[in-house]
C-alpha cells in the first residue's frame, strides 16, 4: 500500500541553515496494517506523516501510494489523493468552526462531489457508528474533546479511504478518553480493514499497536511488532 524508498526532506536546502528532517527513510506498509510511528518531537515523524498524507513533498526519494508515484502529481491530483485515499485525524481535531458535526463529516464528500442526499445519509451513518448521532447538529465548540475527535474520525472515514492517518489523536485528551479513541481505531482496523498509521510520541500507546516504527533524527531506528498482536484493548 505504502512504498517509501530513500525519502529525504530538507529545509533551506543549499543555505547555511539547511536542516535535514528526514534522512533516507525506507518504509513499506502493507494494506490493512496498523502501524504506530513513534518518536520524540522533532524526530521527523510529523514530516513523514505529511509526506505520506500528500500534504508535503519529499526533497528526494520515491513515494508510491497503492502503486501510484506521488511526487509527479500536480496540485489537483494531490488534492484528489487526500480526498479519496486518505483520512486525516489531527491532535487538535481541526473541525471547521461554526459548522455542525454533520456538516463537518459531509465536507470531504462535498469536495468529492457526492450528491447532498447521499452525503447526508453517509454522514449520519458514520456519526451513528461513532455514537455521535445524538449530537450531529452541534457545533464543534459545543462538543467535548472526545466527542470532537469522534466527529473527526467519522469525517476521516467519509470517503471510505484506504488509509487513516492519525497524528497524535489522543494527545489533547485525558487518558480515559484517549483509550476510548484508541479503541475506536482498533475497531476500525478490525471491522473496516483500513490501513492505519498512528503517529505518537508515547511509547506506551505505540505498544498497543501491532507494529511499531521508531523514528529518531530523521531515520528509522527500529521496526518491530508491538505487544498487542490481537488488536484490542483489554
Amino acid at each position: 500500500m505504502i512504498e517509501i524508498r530513500n525519502v529525504v526532506k530538507r529545509y533551506f536546502a543549499g543555505t547555511p541553515n539547511e536542516i535535514t528532517v528526514l534522512d533516507g527513510i525506507d518504509l513499506h506498509i502493507a494494506s490493512g496494517e496498523f502501524v504506530a510511528i513513534v518518536g520524540q518531537s522533532g524526530s521527523g515523524k510529523s514530516t513523514l506523516m505529511n509526506i505520506i498524507g500528500a500534504l508535503d513533498q519529499p526533497s528526494s526519494g520515491e513515494y508510491e501510494l497503492g502503486g501510484t508515484p506521488i511526487q509527479r502529481m500536480n496540485r489537483d491530483e494531490l488534492a484528489q489523493i487526500r480526498n479519496r485515499k486518505i483520512g486525516f485525524v489531527f491532535q487538535s481535531f481541526n473541525l471547521i468552526p461554526r459548522n455542525s458535526a454533520l456538516k463537518n463529516v459531509e465536507l470531504p464528500m462535498v469536495y468529492a462531489g457526492v450528491k447532498p442526499a447521499e452525503r447526508s445519509r453517509r454522514a449520519k451513518e458514520l456519526l451513528a457508528m461513532m455514537g455521535m448521532d445524538e449530537r450531529m447538529d452541534h457545533q464543534p465548540n459545543e462538543l467535548s474533546g472526545g466527542q470532537k475527535q469522534r466527529v473527526a474520525i467519522a469525517r476521516a472515514l467519509a470517503n471510505n479511504p484506504d488509509i487513516i492517518l492519525a497524528d497524535e489523536p489522543t494527545g489533547a485528551l485525558d487518558s480515559k478518553t484517549g483509550n476510548l479513541v484508541m479503541e475506536i481505531f482498533l475497531r476500525i482496523h478490525r471491522e473496516e480493514k483500513k490501513t492505519i498509521l498512528f503517529i505518537t510520541h508515547s511509547t506506551e500507546l505505540a505498544e498497543l499497536c501491532p507494529r511499531v516504527v521508531t523514528v529518531k533524527d530523521g531515520r528509522i531506528v527500529s521496526d518491530k511488532a508491538g505487544s498487542n498482536r490481537g488488536g484490542t484493548l483489554s
Binding site: 488534492a79 484528489q80 487526500r82 480526498n83 486525516f88 471547521i96 469536495y111 470517503n159
Partner: peptide, 13 residues
C-alpha cells in the same frame, strides 16, 4: 489554518 484543514480533506484550489 482552516484553509489548510480544507485542503487536507481534499479541497482543490
Amino acid at each position: 489554518h482552516e484553509i489548510g484543514v480544507r485542503k487536507a480533506l481534499g479541497a482543490k484550489d
